[in-house]
Design a protein around this nucleic acid. Structure first.
Length: 913
RNA sequence: GAGAGCAUAGCUCAGCUGGUUAGAGUGCUUGCUCGACAUGCAAGAGGUCGCUGGUUCGAGUCCAGCUGUUCUCACCA
């Protein structure tokens, strides 16, 4: 074993090197032929629109933790990476790129446009892959996929055609949400509603052949050209006599009927609603009920058309003002009132989205949603945390038909071929030779593409070879085990994978959905480009290392809640890594000094049989067992941050702060604690002449001690590995050489032999004494250099035990134990009372009696408070009868110990007074 | 309008199925360079757990209401 540790932890020196070693040794490659239990994760494919942000870093870190954990547990893990073509988002970027060059997509043509698109995709995919690798993700790169690759294309065609044959896809002219900027339809959930300032226009609609009028209010006066009726509530007394009569549309003077429909809210506005089925979802429904045909007023760019009289050709925003002006000029505008109302915006480009009448493809949701609801209710798909299930149910129960066609070029084509002769729609994987109905050979392909989410919905099985159900990966690794994603994507993606998976594969696409929140900035704001508060994970990795970033994200994530990112947290994680790094460095230095050829052998921990283990070794072995159990359980339940916190606490506050310090003392004592009571069988190693153990025995003890400290380090490295894969691997290499990959060396199991709970408790008492002495020193401003002389008395520990631990107490507390208070003169001492021992400190300066009394009185007050609480508890028969036995027993123990402590305090007080 | 989350130390957050007069990180105060680590060590101060009721032997934890805050869904013309 050699020491080539730098003093400082410098992750950039080894992270890339290690990742490449993992790759060249195929550490992440799944074996499809194995008999091991599969554990599969389909990576949510990042969009090829840009680089990864903190949200991705969180998502990938969580998946990597789970995959590495499961792999170490012995599962055959498969984590499939990939990227999403992100139709609308990427197309928007490409169009913008063209605009900068002074071009439009129509000018360059579809072929050239797609060429650019694929080039774009290659470039961004490369960036994303590079970023993922920097993060340390252990996905199987040989299975990397793209949502528009051949396999996904095949899956999309299969799905579309199956749905079509089952009558679950239809094409029809409906009102859809139209983005005039992206120039495409978008689905309901792609519309974001934001509160905006608007204006409510009150308009006179005159009765036919009369000066009488009804007052109609609207926020969009430019749509009055599309009015086909005016509606009132059937039971509204004010307007009952008007029903069936006719009004004239202002400006156009077109005649429209007054109809009755219970959709109208009598109490809102004037209780009179203009019905414009071509431009409003509710009006469209009213139109259907009353057999009123919609009128479409705008073209695809949002300019008014021939139905709008002299306003033809005007953009709709401008038309709104112009129409209002015109109404005012002709005396038909009663008033305009500013209001705040919710306006739909495109979730991609942010432009105002309005209902638009057009011919589109839809998926009928009625039949698909039932199995999807059932699967979740039956627990086949389990949401973690569970509350997201409610959100899913609520959405799924109210889902409307899904508009899947997009007027974009970048995406999966719609496999529909229209016959120019009979108009029949031929749906097939490729262009049929002729129309299946009339055999006409003139067919034209549908020019639209599919919603990105239509292909994304197939991701978990398309990546495993579906629709080829004989694919060995599909057979071995489907259904996937866990999906890890943010709550913002439940409707878009999770729900659609569930119903699509059930429909296509007759199986759920994943058994568990682990939902996490968003990564926000330090002030709790969403990270966004416009705010400029985004943090680049790569930049952080460069400065602090991937492990530090990963650990920060892992310890911040909690049960579906958002987390706040701050660089301070990364700094703390980096310091943690440094701490571990230096602990390992220290251990190597020690072992090298001892025996450069030493190699740990954990089977020899009980080398000198169990009874000869030192107390601190039993203490750490017990704590290690507990740590393994708890961390395993926490990761299993996706309590990632809880596991991370425990690891942090153990490594820093237990292993480094105590065990390593204890080890140093042990080493100084040449691995034989001088005061340690040895059994009779050790006598043979003892040389009475020089009062030492012989070298053979000392060496055995040393080996045992090294085995234990290496065992502790080994366990800690393994269970920390999923969180901080690089540093743990780096230390593991140094420990065992450069061909041992920690990932392949199994998740540690608790050792039943290390059942040292009693010793653990005893040693916690020793720690308490050390802390009390240190505290005394600090409180009394005593220099560290000065060794304190103390008397130590304990009812809890017998003198033999105290004696066996005195070297720890003396070294760590910076004191010298003169003996027990019972046999020393403690009259001039300052006394510290703990629940395990009484410490009398000999001081040269005169004890300030008043101060001492005050201190003891404070302690007395505190103890009285505690005792009162427990006495009350225990005198309550209900408590004794109803509380669990263990709780009652604990209370009894606590009361006893506090009462004993009080007694000592009172006695001390008495002697002072 | 409907629903959900959150409210605990100055800040960021833990606290699992109710059970030791509330914990961590960070910040703050004090003292430390004794060879793993100043990216460090030791000690300390800091909280009537948003408010009001209720259930219980016992509530930060469960229930109800209220206040504040964030989010999701629906959208009324």
């Amino acid at each position: 074993m050699q020491i080539d540790f730098n003093k400082k932890y410098n992750p950039s020196e080894f992270e890339d090197v290690i990742y490449n070693m993992w790759l060249s040794n195929n550490c992440f490659k799944a074996n499809v032929k194995t008999s091991k239990m599969p554990y599969t994760i389909a990576m949510p494919p990042p969009n090829v629109t840009g680089k990864l942000h903190m949200g991705h870093a969180l998502d990938e870190t969580l998946q990597d933790i789970i995959i590495r954990f499961k792999k170490m547990q012995g599962f055959e893990t498969l984590w499939v990476p990939g990227v999403d073509h992100a139709a609308i988002a990427t197309e928007a970027k490409l169009v913008e790129q063209l605009r900068v060059e002074g071009l439009t997509k129509e000018e360059v043509g579809k072929e050239e446009f797609l060429k650019r698109a694929f080039k774009w995709k290659d470039e961004y995919e490369g960036n994303i892959v590079n970023q993922l690798r920097k993060l340390g993700v252990s996905c199987d790169w040989s299975r990397k996929r793209f949502t528009m690759d051949e396999g996904c294309k095949e899956a999309v065609l299969e799905y579309f055609i199956r749905l079509y044959k089952d009558g679950l896809i239809y094409r029809g002219e409906r009102l859809i949400n139209w983005c005039y900027t992206c120039k495409t339809s978008i689905s309901d959930i792609e519309v974001d509603f934001k509160e905006k300032d608007g204006c409510f226009y009150y308009i006179k609609y005159k009765l036919e052949g009369s000066q009488d009028f009804l007052q109609v209010a609207t926020t969009r006066p430019e749509t009055l050209f599309g009015d086909v009726a005016v509606a009132v509530h059937p039971e509204d007394e004010r307007y009952r006599s008007y029903i069936g009569k006719f009004l004239v549309v202002p400006i156009l003077n077109r005649k429209i009927p007054i109809i009755a429909d219970s959709y109208v809210d009598r109490d809102f506005g004037s209780g009179v609603v203009k019905i414009t089925p071509g431009h409003d979802f509710n009006d469209f429904e009213v139109g259907l009920r009353h057999n009123l045909k919609p009128i479409k007023l705008f073209d695809e760019d949002g300019n008014l058309n021939e139905f709008c009289g002299k306003f033809k050709g005007m953009p709709r925003a401008k038309a709104r003002k112009e129409v209002a002006n015109e109404l005012e000029n002709v005396g038909l505008l009663i008033k305009s009132v500013p209001i705040k109302h919710n306006v739909g915006h495109c979730y991609r480009c942010g432009a105002v989205v309005e209902p638009f009448l057009s011919l589109q493809w839809f998926v009928k949701m009625e039949a698909l949603k039932e199995p999807a609801l059932e699967a979740a209710k039956a627990g086949q798909v389990e949401f973690v945390p569970k509350r997201f299930e409610k959100i899913y149910f609520n959405w799924m129960e109210n889902v409307k038909d899904w508009c899947i066609s997009r007027q974009l070029w970048w995406g999966h084509g719609i496999p529909a071929y229209y016959c120019s002769n009979c108009g029949h729609i031929n749906v097939a994987k490729s262009m049929p030779s002729c129309c299946e109905k009339c055999s006409c050979k003139e067919l034209t392909k549908d020019e639209d593409t599919l919603d990105t989410w239509f292909s994304a919905a197939l991701w978990p099985f398309a990546i495993l070879g579906w629709p080829n159900e004989n694919n060995e990966y599909y057979k071995k690794f489907y259904p996937t085990t866990t999906l890890v994603t943010g709550y913002d994507i439940i409707f878009f993606w999770v729900s659609r994978m569930i119903f699509s998976g059930l429909y296509n594969t007759k199986n759920v696409p994943f058994k568990k959905v682990f939902i996490h929140g968003l990564v926000r900035d330090e002030q709790g704001r969403k990270m966004s480009k416009s705010l400029g508060n985004g943090v680049d994970p790569l930049d952080i990795i460069k400065r602090y290392g991937a492990d530090a970033l990963r650990f920060t994200l892992a310890s911040g994530v909690n049960a579906g809640n958002d987390m706040r990112y701050s660089e301070k947290k990364v700094l703390a994680s980096r310091n943690f890594a440094n701490k571990l790094y230096n602990a390992a460095r220290f251990i190597f230095m020690q072992v090298n000094e001892f025996d450069g050829n030493f190699s740990p052998d954990f089977s020899k921990i009980l080398l000198l049989n169990k009874e000869k283990l030192y107390i601190e070794d039993r203490w750490i072995l017990y704590k290690l067992n507990e740590l393994i159990k708890e961390v395993s359980r926490n990761i299993e339940c996706f309590d990632i941050s809880v596991a991370a916190d425990k690891l942090y606490d153990f490594i820093w506050n237990v292993f480094c702060d105590w065990y390593i310090e204890l080890f140093k003392i042990k080493k100084v004592n040449n691995f034989i604690a001088k005061n340690y009571l040895c059994g009779a069988d050790e006598d043979r190693y003892f040389n009475a002449e020089n009062g030492c153990f012989n070298s053979e025995y000392v060496k055995m003890r040393a080996q045992q001690s090294f085995n234990i400290i290496f065992y502790a380090l080994d366990v800690v490295l393994k269970i920390l590995h999923p969180f901080m894969p690089f540093i743990t691997q780096e230390i593991y290499f140094k420990l065992y050489g450069s061909n041992r990959f920690i990932l392949n060396y199994g998740w540690p199991a608790p050792n039943d032999e290390f059942n040292f709970e009693a010793e653990y408790r005893l040693f916690e008492g020793v720690i308490k004494i050390v802390k009390a002495v240190r505290n005394f020193r600090a409180q009394n401003n005593i220099q560290n250099k000065l060794n304190l002389n103390i008397y130590l008395t304990s009812d809890v520990f017998n003198s033999g035990f105290i004696n066996s631990c005195r070297h720890f107490i003396e070294k760590l507390g910076g004191c010298h134990i003169l003996g027990s208070s019972l046999d020393g003169d403690v009259s001039g001492c300052k006394r510290v009372i703990t629940d395990v021992a009484v410490i009398d400190v000999v001081l040269d300066n005169v004890v300030n009696k008043d101060e001492e009394i005050k201190k003891l009185q404070n302690q007395k007050q505190y103890l009285l408070g505690e005792i009162k609480i427990f006495r009350q508890k225990l005198s309550n028969t209900n408590f004794k009868n109803k509380a669990p036995k263990a709780v009652v027993e604990a209370a009894v123990r606590k009361l006893e110990s506090k009462e004993a402590e009080l007694k000592t305090v009172e006695a001390s007080l008495k002697s002072l007074l």
